[in-house]
Design a protein around this nucleic acid. Sequence first.
RNA 1: GCCCGAGUGGCGGAAUGGCAGACGCAGCGGACUCAAAAUCCGCCGGGGGCAACCCCGUGUGGGUUCGACUCCCACCUCGGGCACCA
Length: 816
Amino acid sequence: MTEHHPEDGYHPGQVEAKWQARWTERRTNEPNLERAERPFYNLMMFPYPSAEGLHVGNFFAFTGADVHGRFKRLQGYQVFEPMGFDAFGIHSENFAIKIGTHPAELIPKNIANFRRQLRALGGMFDWRHELSTTDPAYYKWTQWLFLELYKAGKAYKKKAAVNWCPHCKTVLANEQVINGACERCGTPVETRLLEQWFFRITEYADRLLANLDDRSKMDWAPTTVAAQRNWIGRSEGAEVRFESPAGPIAVFTTRPDTIFGATFLVLAPEHPLVERLTSAPQRAAVDAYRHAAAAQDLVSRKVGDKEKTGVPTGGTAVNPATGQPVPVWIADYVLMEYGTGAIMAVPGHDERDFEFANRYTLPIVRVLAGPETDAGTPVEAAESGVEGHRLVNSGPFSDMPAQAGRKAIVAWLEQNGHGKGVVQYRLYDWCISRQRYWGPPIPIIYCDACGPVPVPEKDLPVLLPNIADFRPDDSGISPLARHKEWYEVPCPTCGKPGHRETDVSDTFLDSAWYYLRYLSTEFDDRPFDAGRVKRWLPVATYIGGNEHAVLHLLYSRFVAMVLFDQGKLPFEEPFRKFRAHGLIVKDGAKMSKSKGNVVIPDEYIVRWGADTFRMYLMFLGPFEEGGDFRDEGLSGPRRFLSKVWDLVGQAERRTLVGSEVHHGIVVKWHQTKKRVTEGLETLSYNTAIAALMELLNAMRASNCSERKIVKEMVLMLAPFAPHFAEECWERLGATTSVFDAEWPSWDEGLTQEHTVEVAVQINGKARSRIRLPRGAHESAAVGAARQDPTVAKFLEGAEIKKVVWVPDRLLNLVTG
RNA sequence: GCCCGAGUGGCGGAAUGGCAGACGCAGCGGACUCAAAAUCCGCCGGGGGCAACCCCGUGUGGGUUCGACUCCCACCUCGGGCACCA
């Protein structure tokens, strides 16, 4: 397909090939990691190298991040912009199984293709520091990291009910289960009990949460912060002990103020005290209920909106506030994993408890009253309000406002040993075990005499053996266990026969520290070099997708925090600034193969050139929101570049002196510099490009090709269209890279005209415009307005009651 | 249900208390051309008027203000996160 463009001599293919070669030759994008004075670490989320190649979403994300990096470079920073590949994991492995090729063979090919595409995009990547998580030189240190966590007591193994995907034949983290199904293949997930490795991320819940509000450590997009906050899920409440013949039952509640209304307790069916609480007549019913609950998978158990069921244990406990005995039930709406696995049910003021009490005709007591209710008003629906509510039927606490009552009751519980205020988190420990092949083996050796023994650092990496049969089976044990020569190994401590851990680690562990490795890829005696870490980290700007708002970003923060506590890193938070890019849709619909509306970037680059493609992607909407990709849209930026190309050809060899250039153009020029700079700072790339287009239109309209302005226009275009800008820069006589030039500055005084157009409103409605000298006084404005025929017409017969004067902008005459 | 974000021409979007629709796409009219493409010039929210101009218009309803796309209250729709979490 051939496009018809003006005979302007701009041939993107030639220009782009030339500059990509030059950048490599001249090492343009390789900052000095040891000595950079103004280091700027510009990180973007590394891709999974799929067989399909980079999709347009990757291009959009990488371009936006690259524009940011190039802008910082032009502002005088030494920018380190690395790139790598997140190539381990179930995704690669499943694809390899599907097409019957070993992943170790597939991945290098995919990476080669990705590298080609990334070069074609024109990113300022420092290829000296490329990495792949599948490289033994990399995962040696992933294993080292596991051992650091293990030695710090942050890794432990436990038998746990886990999500098992029968299709992928692997354990999934809770966060990889979406509405009860495997996020990857959609198969409903089952429950299995397996020995799993976990990291104690829950120990860090409070710090992970607190730092989100610390602007000195983190400047993150609000949506991302909100997602993390939800995920950590802090709730304040109290743990209360209810005495029972089987021993004390601890319950967690966020509403200790309603304790006088707790008319029964509900335990999770798995609760350890159920056995002893159950009375003989209830035994059969309880056992049956517990069996039914156990047979259910974790998922359907948690899917809401179903009828609440439960059975009484026959046992009772004593409400410490009322001193009254209350029946103890079990029900599957209470989950063993959260809180203490037991609740005090307050049916008057909790919807779930209300529903349950109604179904099983359990007593409902009102302990909160609002403005229109009192202690005697019957409870018709659970009322859970706090604001404007007071306690009733609550002994000595009656009539206290709910807020104060809560504090008083917690204090009373603490004084009398019935409980204490506690904080609960929704966050779970991070399960990192995967019973699969394609990942870094967890570096532990089991010895009958010594127990689990870490593989000594000198023996790292534990190489992933190249085996032909890497398919998982239904045993729940990694394929690695089937290979004796790898599996059986002497104990590093005592030398007796032992065997290796066969689980591999989660890919999120690979990506939790890759930003540390980029800086030090050439060292194989240390994971990251202390001097470089000190100079370059934390990451100045991190740009990536919000689909990683929780998992990847939270795990990375956790790992950094542990390393910080170990004294191995000088910072707690690894990413000072994080911004999420938006999503690209095509013609108003999500791209998908089935719809046939997938944009293949390579084709667009061949047809339009990378610079036009980059400009279009950055122009189609706000970077943090994404936008709609339409093929027709490419011609706008392309026409713009052609016109700039022509203008560069016309630019005369002279410098600006006062009156030579129309003052209107000078003003537009300075306004543009301001708008483009501010747009680049805030990632408002679409408006920055619009500003450049306006400047071009203004220059063409007044036949101006002033060299100095053209040069700065090229400079401002450089982040978006780097090859194009280099070529134009050279055509304008430069012998060095445009990226070694200095970002233009503007004169604030020249961003406004000598005379300004002021809107004149009558009673808030725009009626006319008048031209006034800048800085004119109110009286002058009113005088000028009165002269205006339209204004005069509207003022006829009316009296001006009030004048609103916004200098240089607007005059509003109010007649009343 | 709770927590974020968003709703503006035919389309992508701009303007975050001061002239709504910048910039771009598409469309329409014209110039150039044998013709087309490309390029250039003009028009381009709706309604009315020969015209100068006027009326209406930023999801819906109310409010604050001299003035509201922008702020406040209530609601509707869409996107995202969390969710029998006590």
